[in-house]
Design a protein around this nucleic acid. Structure first.
Lengths: 147, 147
DNA sequence: CAGGATCCCGCTAGATACTG
DNA sequence: CAGTATCTAGCGGGATCCTG
Protein backbone atom coordinates (compact mmCIF):
# COMPACT_ATOMS: atom_id res chain seq x y z
CA UNK A 1 0.00 0.00 0.00
CA UNK A 2 1.27 3.45 -0.89
CA UNK A 3 -0.24 5.40 1.98
CA UNK A 4 1.29 4.90 5.38
CA UNK A 5 -0.51 3.48 8.31
CA UNK A 6 -0.40 5.37 11.58
CA UNK A 7 1.98 2.77 12.93
CA UNK A 8 4.35 3.32 10.05
CA UNK A 9 4.29 7.04 10.56
CA UNK A 10 5.14 6.62 14.20
CA UNK A 11 7.97 4.27 13.36
CA UNK A 12 9.37 6.84 10.96
CA UNK A 13 9.12 9.65 13.46
CA UNK A 14 10.89 7.49 15.99
CA UNK A 15 13.65 6.63 13.56
CA UNK A 16 14.18 10.31 12.83
CA UNK A 17 14.22 11.11 16.48
CA UNK A 18 16.71 8.40 17.21
CA UNK A 19 18.95 9.69 14.46
CA UNK A 20 18.69 13.13 15.96
CA UNK A 21 19.62 11.79 19.36
CA UNK A 22 22.55 9.87 17.98
CA UNK A 23 23.99 13.10 16.58
CA UNK A 24 23.25 15.27 19.59
CA UNK A 25 26.48 16.28 21.34
CA UNK A 26 24.92 16.42 24.79
CA UNK A 27 23.53 12.96 24.37
CA UNK A 28 26.88 11.61 23.27
CA UNK A 29 28.56 13.22 26.23
CA UNK A 30 26.03 11.70 28.58
CA UNK A 31 26.46 8.31 27.04
CA UNK A 32 30.18 8.56 27.54
CA UNK A 33 30.32 9.78 31.10
CA UNK A 34 27.48 7.68 32.36
CA UNK A 35 29.40 4.58 31.46
CA UNK A 36 29.70 2.74 34.71
CA UNK A 37 33.46 3.08 35.08
CA UNK A 38 34.34 6.25 33.20
CA UNK A 39 33.83 8.57 36.13
CA UNK A 40 35.82 6.32 38.40
CA UNK A 41 38.76 6.04 36.04
CA UNK A 42 38.71 9.75 35.40
CA UNK A 43 38.84 10.61 39.05
CA UNK A 44 41.47 7.98 39.68
CA UNK A 45 43.71 9.43 36.99
CA UNK A 46 42.72 12.98 37.78
CA UNK A 47 43.69 12.71 41.38
CA UNK A 48 40.94 14.06 43.60
CA UNK A 49 37.79 12.12 43.37
CA UNK A 50 35.07 9.93 44.57
CA UNK A 51 37.39 7.36 45.99
CA UNK A 52 36.79 6.68 49.66
CA UNK A 53 39.26 8.41 51.85
CA UNK A 54 41.06 5.67 53.70
CA UNK A 55 42.15 3.74 50.68
CA UNK A 56 45.58 5.22 50.26
CA UNK A 57 44.61 7.35 47.31
CA UNK A 58 45.78 10.69 48.59
CA UNK A 59 44.97 12.44 45.38
CA UNK A 60 48.16 12.99 43.45
CA UNK A 61 47.36 13.08 39.72
CA UNK A 62 49.57 11.60 37.08
CA UNK A 63 49.97 8.36 35.17
CA UNK A 64 48.82 5.08 36.60
CA UNK A 65 49.52 1.55 35.61
CA UNK A 66 46.89 -0.91 34.55
CA UNK A 67 47.22 -2.98 37.68
CA UNK A 68 47.13 0.09 39.88
CA UNK A 69 43.81 1.03 38.39
CA UNK A 70 42.54 -2.50 38.77
CA UNK A 71 43.47 -2.48 42.44
CA UNK A 72 42.05 0.94 43.11
CA UNK A 73 38.74 0.22 41.43
CA UNK A 74 38.12 -2.93 43.37
CA UNK A 75 34.82 -3.69 41.71
CA UNK A 76 35.85 -3.62 38.07
CA UNK A 77 36.40 -6.67 35.92
CA UNK A 78 39.44 -6.81 33.67
CA UNK A 79 37.20 -6.83 30.68
CA UNK A 80 35.41 -3.64 31.58
CA UNK A 81 38.59 -1.91 32.68
CA UNK A 82 40.32 -2.66 29.40
CA UNK A 83 37.26 -1.85 27.38
CA UNK A 84 36.67 1.47 29.11
CA UNK A 85 40.33 2.42 28.90
CA UNK A 86 40.35 1.64 25.20
CA UNK A 87 37.32 3.74 24.47
CA UNK A 88 38.73 6.61 26.50
CA UNK A 89 41.94 6.36 24.54
CA UNK A 90 39.98 6.29 21.33
CA UNK A 91 38.24 9.50 22.29
CA UNK A 92 41.52 11.17 23.12
CA UNK A 93 40.76 11.44 26.81
CA UNK A 94 43.63 9.31 28.03
CA UNK A 95 46.95 8.25 26.60
CA UNK A 96 48.23 4.72 26.70
CA UNK A 97 51.97 4.21 26.99
CA UNK A 98 53.50 0.77 26.78
CA UNK A 99 57.12 0.39 27.78
CA UNK A 100 58.59 -2.92 26.62
CA UNK A 101 60.26 -3.97 29.84
CA UNK A 102 60.50 -7.66 30.60
CA UNK A 103 57.04 -7.96 31.95
CA UNK A 104 55.28 -5.31 29.92
CA UNK A 105 54.50 -2.04 31.63
CA UNK A 106 51.56 0.04 30.53
CA UNK A 107 50.56 3.34 32.01
CA UNK A 108 47.60 5.58 31.39
CA UNK A 109 47.38 9.31 31.80
CA UNK A 110 44.79 12.00 31.23
CA UNK A 111 45.17 14.20 28.19
CA UNK A 112 44.30 17.89 28.35
CA UNK A 113 40.91 17.04 26.97
CA UNK A 114 40.45 14.35 29.58
CA UNK A 115 41.53 16.76 32.26
CA UNK A 116 39.01 19.27 31.03
CA UNK A 117 36.31 16.64 31.21
CA UNK A 118 37.43 15.74 34.67
CA UNK A 119 37.10 19.36 35.73
CA UNK A 120 33.57 19.43 34.46
CA UNK A 121 32.76 16.26 36.33
CA UNK A 122 33.88 17.94 39.52
CA UNK A 123 31.18 20.52 38.95
CA UNK A 124 28.74 17.71 38.65
CA UNK A 125 30.06 16.20 41.82
CA UNK A 126 29.56 19.51 43.60
CA UNK A 127 25.95 19.63 42.53
CA UNK A 128 25.49 16.08 43.70
CA UNK A 129 26.88 16.79 47.12
CA UNK A 130 24.82 19.91 47.46
CA UNK A 131 21.46 18.63 46.30
CA UNK A 132 21.35 14.87 46.47
CA UNK A 133 20.31 14.97 50.10
CA UNK A 134 17.19 16.85 49.10
CA UNK A 135 16.50 14.35 46.38
CA UNK A 136 16.90 11.45 48.75
CA UNK A 137 14.68 13.12 51.33
CA UNK A 138 12.00 13.67 48.71
CA UNK A 139 12.32 10.08 47.67
CA UNK A 140 11.77 8.79 51.17
CA UNK A 141 8.87 11.12 51.73
CA UNK A 142 7.28 9.89 48.53
CA UNK A 143 7.77 6.27 49.45
CA UNK A 144 6.43 6.94 52.92
CA UNK A 145 3.21 8.39 51.53
CA UNK A 146 2.53 5.52 49.19
CA UNK A 147 3.45 2.78 51.64
CA UNK B 1 36.89 -23.98 55.43
CA UNK B 2 37.45 -21.08 57.75
CA UNK B 3 40.13 -19.26 55.79
CA UNK B 4 39.06 -17.43 52.67
CA UNK B 5 40.16 -18.31 49.21
CA UNK B 6 41.50 -15.57 47.01
CA UNK B 7 38.29 -15.66 45.02
CA UNK B 8 36.25 -15.12 48.15
CA UNK B 9 38.40 -12.19 49.16
CA UNK B 10 37.90 -10.61 45.79
CA UNK B 11 34.18 -11.16 45.97
CA UNK B 12 34.10 -9.44 49.33
CA UNK B 13 36.14 -6.50 48.14
CA UNK B 14 33.82 -6.14 45.19
CA UNK B 15 30.76 -6.24 47.41
CA UNK B 16 32.20 -3.51 49.59
CA UNK B 17 33.06 -1.45 46.58
CA UNK B 18 29.61 -1.85 45.15
CA UNK B 19 28.11 -0.77 48.43
CA UNK B 20 30.35 2.25 48.39
CA UNK B 21 29.25 3.09 44.88
CA UNK B 22 25.61 2.70 45.77
CA UNK B 23 25.99 5.31 48.48
CA UNK B 24 28.13 7.73 46.49
CA UNK B 25 26.19 10.90 45.69
CA UNK B 26 27.96 11.51 42.42
CA UNK B 27 27.23 8.01 41.26
CA UNK B 28 23.55 8.39 42.14
CA UNK B 29 23.38 11.66 40.28
CA UNK B 30 24.97 10.10 37.23
CA UNK B 31 22.58 7.19 37.34
CA UNK B 32 19.68 9.58 37.44
CA UNK B 33 20.66 11.97 34.70
CA UNK B 34 22.04 9.38 32.37
CA UNK B 35 18.68 7.74 32.18
CA UNK B 36 17.84 7.85 28.52
CA UNK B 37 14.89 10.24 28.83
CA UNK B 38 15.65 12.32 31.88
CA UNK B 39 17.70 14.93 30.07
CA UNK B 40 15.10 15.22 27.33
CA UNK B 41 12.21 15.67 29.73
CA UNK B 42 14.17 18.15 31.76
CA UNK B 43 14.98 20.30 28.79
CA UNK B 44 11.45 20.01 27.49
CA UNK B 45 10.02 21.24 30.78
CA UNK B 46 12.85 23.69 31.34
CA UNK B 47 12.33 25.42 28.05
CA UNK B 48 15.65 25.78 26.29
CA UNK B 49 17.17 22.57 25.32
CA UNK B 50 18.43 19.95 23.05
CA UNK B 51 15.31 19.84 20.99
CA UNK B 52 15.93 20.46 17.33
CA UNK B 53 15.08 23.95 16.33
CA UNK B 54 12.35 23.63 13.76
CA UNK B 55 10.00 21.57 15.82
CA UNK B 56 7.86 24.31 17.20
CA UNK B 57 9.41 24.23 20.63
CA UNK B 58 10.37 27.83 20.92
CA UNK B 59 11.60 27.42 24.44
CA UNK B 60 9.00 28.80 26.80
CA UNK B 61 9.29 27.01 30.15
CA UNK B 62 6.33 26.05 32.25
CA UNK B 63 4.00 23.12 32.77
CA UNK B 64 3.38 20.61 30.03
CA UNK B 65 0.76 17.97 29.63
CA UNK B 66 1.51 14.30 29.31
CA UNK B 67 0.49 14.17 25.68
CA UNK B 68 2.51 17.26 24.86
CA UNK B 69 5.60 15.58 26.20
CA UNK B 70 4.77 12.41 24.33
CA UNK B 71 4.48 14.36 21.09
CA UNK B 72 7.61 16.40 21.67
CA UNK B 73 9.76 13.42 22.52
CA UNK B 74 8.83 11.50 19.43
CA UNK B 75 10.92 8.49 20.27
CA UNK B 76 9.65 7.68 23.73
CA UNK B 77 7.25 4.89 24.55
CA UNK B 78 4.38 5.56 26.93
CA UNK B 79 5.87 3.15 29.36
CA UNK B 80 9.21 4.90 29.58
CA UNK B 81 7.64 8.34 29.63
CA UNK B 82 5.39 7.43 32.53
CA UNK B 83 8.13 5.58 34.34
CA UNK B 84 10.62 8.42 33.99
CA UNK B 85 8.08 11.02 34.98
CA UNK B 86 7.17 9.00 38.05
CA UNK B 87 10.73 8.65 39.21
CA UNK B 88 11.37 12.33 38.65
CA UNK B 89 8.31 13.11 40.72
CA UNK B 90 9.51 10.73 43.38
CA UNK B 91 12.80 12.57 43.56
CA UNK B 92 11.07 15.91 43.86
CA UNK B 93 12.33 17.15 40.51
CA UNK B 94 8.93 17.59 38.88
CA UNK B 95 5.41 18.02 40.16
CA UNK B 96 2.45 16.12 38.83
CA UNK B 97 -0.90 17.89 38.81
CA UNK B 98 -4.06 16.07 37.81
CA UNK B 99 -7.17 18.15 37.22
CA UNK B 100 -10.33 16.02 37.14
CA UNK B 101 -11.91 17.39 34.01
CA UNK B 102 -14.00 15.07 31.90
CA UNK B 103 -11.07 13.54 30.10
CA UNK B 104 -8.46 13.76 32.81
CA UNK B 105 -5.83 16.44 32.43
CA UNK B 106 -2.38 15.94 33.90
CA UNK B 107 0.42 18.44 33.74
CA UNK B 108 4.02 18.28 34.81
CA UNK B 109 6.27 21.10 35.89
CA UNK B 110 9.80 21.47 37.18
CA UNK B 111 10.29 22.13 40.86
CA UNK B 112 13.02 24.45 42.06
CA UNK B 113 15.22 21.45 42.57
CA UNK B 114 14.47 20.23 39.08
CA UNK B 115 15.21 23.66 37.71
CA UNK B 116 18.52 23.68 39.53
CA UNK B 117 19.37 20.35 38.01
CA UNK B 118 18.38 21.63 34.62
CA UNK B 119 20.72 24.58 35.05
CA UNK B 120 23.54 22.21 35.81
CA UNK B 121 22.75 20.15 32.77
CA UNK B 122 23.11 23.26 30.65
CA UNK B 123 26.68 23.51 31.86
CA UNK B 124 27.16 19.97 30.73
CA UNK B 125 25.63 20.81 27.40
CA UNK B 126 28.04 23.70 27.03
CA UNK B 127 30.99 21.43 27.61
CA UNK B 128 29.58 18.99 25.11
CA UNK B 129 29.24 21.62 22.43
CA UNK B 130 32.69 22.96 23.10
CA UNK B 131 34.65 19.74 23.22
CA UNK B 132 32.72 16.94 21.61
CA UNK B 133 34.06 17.88 18.20
CA UNK B 134 37.57 17.20 19.46
CA UNK B 135 36.47 13.91 20.89
CA UNK B 136 34.85 12.90 17.64
CA UNK B 137 37.90 13.96 15.68
CA UNK B 138 40.14 11.90 17.93
CA UNK B 139 37.82 8.98 17.52
CA UNK B 140 37.99 9.12 13.76
CA UNK B 141 41.72 9.51 13.79
CA UNK B 142 42.00 6.48 16.02
CA UNK B 143 39.74 4.41 13.82
CA UNK B 144 41.63 5.54 10.77
CA UNK B 145 44.93 4.34 12.20
CA UNK B 146 43.66 0.91 13.12
CA UNK B 147 41.71 0.33 9.92
C1' DC C 1 51.79 -7.84 33.53
C1' DA C 2 48.27 -6.53 30.50
C1' DG C 3 44.77 -7.98 27.74
C1' DG C 4 42.17 -11.05 24.17
C1' DA C 5 38.34 -14.52 23.51
C1' DT C 6 34.30 -16.76 24.90
C1' DC C 7 30.18 -18.04 27.27
C1' DC C 8 26.34 -16.69 29.76
C1' DC C 9 22.92 -14.31 32.51
C1' DG C 10 19.95 -10.55 34.27
C1' DC C 11 17.90 -6.55 33.32
C1' DT C 12 15.46 -3.39 30.92
C1' DA C 13 13.65 -0.99 26.99
C1' DG C 14 10.17 -1.55 23.74
C1' DA C 15 5.87 -3.35 21.48
C1' DT C 16 1.23 -4.50 22.15
C1' DA C 17 -3.12 -4.66 24.29
C1' DC C 18 -6.25 -3.20 27.84
C1' DT C 19 -8.65 0.42 31.30
C1' DG C 20 -10.71 4.30 34.41
C1' DC D 1 -6.50 11.40 28.00
C1' DA D 2 -3.33 9.25 30.74
C1' DG D 3 -2.04 5.72 32.08
C1' DT D 4 -1.40 0.05 33.55
C1' DA D 5 -0.17 -4.87 32.51
C1' DT D 6 2.36 -8.39 30.29
C1' DC D 7 5.60 -10.56 27.38
C1' DT D 8 9.92 -10.79 24.88
C1' DA D 9 14.32 -10.01 22.65
C1' DG D 10 18.70 -7.73 22.84
C1' DC D 11 22.65 -6.47 25.05
C1' DG D 12 25.57 -4.68 28.64
C1' DG D 13 28.37 -6.57 31.78
C1' DG D 14 30.55 -10.25 34.69
C1' DA D 15 33.12 -14.74 35.22
C1' DT D 16 36.39 -17.66 33.37
C1' DC D 17 40.04 -19.32 30.65
C1' DC D 18 43.89 -18.39 27.73
C1' DT D 19 48.22 -15.70 25.57
C1' DG D 20 52.32 -12.48 24.09
Amino acid sequence: MATMTAAQKRALAKAEYDAFLAACPSRRLLDRISDKWVALILSALGGGGSRREGAGCAGEPGPMRYSELARLLAGVSQKMLTQTLRSLERDGLVTRTATPTVPVTVSYELTDLGLSLHQMMRGLKTWAETHMDDVLANREAYDGRTA
